[in-house]
Design a protein around this nucleic acid. Sequence first.
DNA 1: TATTGTTATACTCTATAACTATA
DNA 2: TATAGTTATAGAGTATAACAATA
Lengths: 164, 164
Amino acid sequence: MSEPEPPLDPDLLNAYFALMDVAALLRHSVEQQLREEGDLSYVQFQVMATLYFSEAGSARMTDLADGIVHSRSGLTYQVGLLEKAGLVTRAPSERDERGVTVTITEAGRERLELVMPGHREVVNHLLLQPLPPDSAVALVELLGPVREHLRAAPPRSARPRGRR
Amino acid sequence: MSEPEPPLDPDLLNAYFALMDVAALLRHSVEQQLREEGDLSYVQFQVMATLYFSEAGSARMTDLADGIVHSRSGLTYQVGLLEKAGLVTRAPSERDERGVTVTITEAGRERLELVMPGHREVVNHLLLQPLPPDSAVALVELLGPVREHLRAAPPRSARPRGRR
DNA sequence: TATTGTTATACTCTATAACTATA
DNA sequence: TATAGTTATAGAGTATAACAATA
């Protein structure tokens, strides 16, 4: 509003497009693998992985929504599919009767384990190996701050509906 | 098939997730901006930008498809919308009667110019400024090879339907 | 016969707003 | 009154396969 917008020189534009391109291509491949080998969408994969690696194997809807999805109804939809498939369970939260606790089932764990090897393979072949040697860490160092900035900032449409 | 898959240590996994997260968040914001200020989808924006910056202001469907979209029918759909909106024109290609040449109109140029300032602003604020100083170039150096690898490789579903 | 592009169709995903129930 | 989550609904985007026309 006050700072004159920088001209966004070709280098910068190029960085932006490179990022968007790589991500789109990678996501497309990854989604194909998840669908073919485990009948999962990428969002479902994120939910399953979050649960799988959590202490209790469970989480509240709200906590899943933050950082995975843009609208709460979208999460309800995806978790609904997971429940129908018997991969997760839904139950009222103990502490807060309003909340819903989602828990991964044994079948859910097996499904994730079924999918992981192929998933790693795709990510390795498509992203990590083509990366210049030992630069994965560098990538995280570049993108880490951006990620935090994006998560904190307003853009998320799962934007704290007034939360917290 | 012969190499034992590397275990994909946390650093690598983290790089992968950071990339996917940042891209998803960024894309969401960028799509919002394009929709609100110019009534364009991101794919439409890519098409328009490609045409805008090309010599003749035009390109064939096939050339647009490569690198923008995963299925040819998807491109037909998006270009159809652009044509309806008067932002591009479609005409049989001169050299090859099978082909269709898409050309940006004056209204199309104006629309892109209308959208660019806000677009740059979003990209600057959300991606470039949070990036460690002077690291845009570094990002391109990391992602550039990956992009080329992905473009060349099979994963594209707009995969040369036998092309060339 | 191969290539270019479109169409028809079906489906997945997403988002908004209205609604219920608990805190 | 504010928060958690669901539902209804509507719309945007995508992909597959069949198709027409040109090379």
